[in-house]
């Protein structure tokens, strides 16, 4: 119990630090959102309107940084992240809510597939090291060494241009109205397959390599030899003794990877014109959209924090040694 409380306090402090940095960081950036907006409008807004815009965005008050900080917390606790400059007057929460599920869904599922596949394959070739299966390693490493955008372009050229199996870009058929229907779901899956496939292809080697190396290390542990000497069925030696211990470091990388999903995979979203949060953040930075940037960063940092907490919990469940106090 003390362990949980201590971790809880730790996460509270980390969350506070993350939010504070999130507040400070955009204010350190050079440039002015109003000037950026004027530049974007390409003369359609008269420069005399500048003051009006400032007023509109609430940038006119000469509040002290401390006052701003307090106000920021107040708004944050009410779930108010402000209004996006770029998509004025849509609230930031709404803008993020539109793109976050797409990223989480696609990259999340791809990461889970990649992790599961990589861990199983790594377990197999780690246990039977020195056989033909080791040849899988360089093959998968090749795909992660290839720059991702290039891999994506090749996949598009091959599977959508030449073979025509999957659409080249987008996240669903634009002629459809988003709804919870089988047709729409089918469309989402069809559009998502190629990006997901390329993500799995480029990331699976990390999981394979990690698991294989841990399997090799754990296989030489005495307790695995003891399990063999006990005459346990091979399956329970591999799964219960070798893999069960080898997966521990793998699990913590996995939970961390889940946290980073929320950050989006910008290149994937650009290559496949997918409406994810990575691209949103990219646009926000380009347009000096402070509220949106802050909103994105906040979601990302909190996601990483939650993933860390999940990692702690999962680790405690899987490894009894970490449950010990002190």
């Amino acid at each position: 119990m003390r362990f949980v409380v201590r971790r809880g306090i730790f996460y509270l402090i980390t969350a506070w630090a993350a939010v504070t940095i999130n507040f400070v960081l955009p204010r350190l950036m050079p440039g002015d959102p109003v000037a950026a907006l004027l530049a974007k409008s390409q003369g359609q807004i008269d420069s005399s309107a500048e003051d009006a815009i400032r007023l509109l965005f609430g940038l006119d008050q000469d509040a002290s940084i401390w006052q701003q900080y307090v106000d920021y917390w107040g708004l944050l606790l009410h779930g108010n992240l402000g209004v996006s400059f770029m998509n004025f007057p849509t609230p930031v929460t709404e803008v993020i809510a539109q793109s976050l599920p797409w990223t989480v869904g696609l990259v999340g599922i791809a990461t889970v597939i990649s992790f599961t596949l990589g861990t199983l394959v790594g377990m197999g070739i780690g246990w039977r090291r020195g056989t033909w299966a080791d040849g899988l390693l360089p093959a998968t490493t090749f795909f992660s060494a290839v720059p991702y955008f290039w891999l994506g372009l090749i996949a598009i050229a091959l599977f959508s241009v030449t073979l025509g199996w999957f659409p080249a870009s987008g996240s669903y058929d634009r002629s459809m109205i988003p709804a919870l229907t089988p047709e729409f779901a089918g469309s989402v899956i069809r559009y998502g397959t190629l990006p997901a496939f390329t993500i799995v292809l480029s990331s699976v080697s990390g999981w394979i390599l990690g698991m294989r190396n841990m399997m090799v290390t754990v296989s030489s542990e005495d307790y695995v030899t003891v399990a063999q000497a006990k005459g346990l069925p091979e399956r329970s030696v591999v799964v219960g003794y070798a893999a069960r211990n080898a997966i521990l470091p793998q699990m913590s990388s996995f939970t961390l990877a889940l946290g980073f999903i929320v950050g989006g995979t910008l290149i994937m979203e650009m290559v496949f014109s997918y409406q994810g949060i990575g691209f949103l953040l990219y646009q926000a930075v380009g347009n000096h959209d402070y509220p949106l940037m802050q909103g994105c960063f906040l979601v990302i940092t909190l996601a990483v924090l939650v993933a860390n907490m999940a990692a702690d919990v999962i680790y405690a469940v899987l490894d009894p040694r970490t449950r010990q106090e002190g």
Binding site: D222, Q228, K230, R244, N245, D319
Partner: peptide
């Protein structure tokens, strides 16, 4: 046959008392 015979006929106690037990069971 080997799996069936192990532990039943010949059992072993290894050197590393520290590492002979699976830490997670």
């Amino acid at each position: 046959e080997l799996r069936a015979a192990r532990w039943q006929d010949v059992a072993i106690v290894f050197q590393g008392a520290m590492n002979s037990l699976n830490p997670v069971f």
